[in-house]
Design a protein around this nucleic acid. Sequence first.
DNA 1: TTCATTCACTTGCAAAATACAAGTTTATGA
DNA 2: TCATAAACTTGTATTTTGCAAGTGAATGAA
Lengths: 146, 146
Amino acid sequence: MPKPGKFRGTGCPVAFALDTFGDRWSLLIVRDMLMKQKRTYGSFLEADEGFATNILADRLKFLESIDIVKKEKDPDNRRSYLYTLTDKGYDLAPIILEFIRWSAKYDPDTIVKPAVLDRVKNDREAFLEELCWPPDRKTKLRHPKN
Amino acid sequence: MPKPGKFRGTGCPVAFALDTFGDRWSLLIVRDMLMKQKRTYGSFLEADEGFATNILADRLKFLESIDIVKKEKDPDNRRSYLYTLTDKGYDLAPIILEFIRWSAKYDPDTIVKPAVLDRVKNDREAFLEELCWPPDRKTKLRHPKN
DNA sequence: TTCATTCACTTGCAAAATACAAGTTTATGA
DNA sequence: TCATAAACTTGTATTTTGCAAGTGAATGAA
């Protein structure tokens, strides 16, 4: 749980974003939900970056508290939960895409495939659409016009 | 100074970006350089978010070490330095714009003006151009074709 | 020429966050 | 019945952060 005072409340959008997800872990969770279809605690723990379990628990709790992630009981397994992105969480996708574009350019060891980078640069809208509207999201809610 | 091992080296572009500027302060420095024409240590310290002076010094040193920021002696004042963005630093502008767009949507106290938000949404390329090519950058280097 | 002020930091320290290992609880499934 | 699994929690050592105070060189007014 984050302490009050984490949010600086200056109204600056950059500061607000940093107060919300400005750490080394939060957006990795979003990445795994958005690009790797991960939904369970255990699957997040398996990430190559190596989450510490307490940090993961803390971030999931925080992201849930600010409505970026939603936690529901898994209907098929009573001991597990399913974490999914909210609309607010899916709206982080453009930020992730810009991260990909920047890192693909500057990380000499990037694993970004040329085909993916090409879509980020030249087919951005359709790519975003694919990431943000997987089949199971489509069944829940029709596209907002905006 | 960051310790070795800060970079997780998984090749994932999201992780690389977070290892590079995934903290609460680094992008505020970039914001101030990009949008507020700040260039000196003292002016960064004046930000509303309240930099701790040791943190600011540490981040500037790190950003310089990875070539996001460049430090030069001020030709007009021998006791001060001028910090400016490198090409790699200016390439963070699209990320900042997406931060603005996201925060303007979700921060009820945002100070983002409707006119600015409109440019981010509907005049993005030209807006980026303005931010990334101030007069003094133009004199130094002509536009890369890309 | 003196000296108060400015600029860009550095240092010290308490408090908070992180990383790592181990333990707990409830549910499965053989 | 009971070993295993999923999702955490707890404890602790290490790091990082936040705050205050201090340093040294350069300026500029008197």
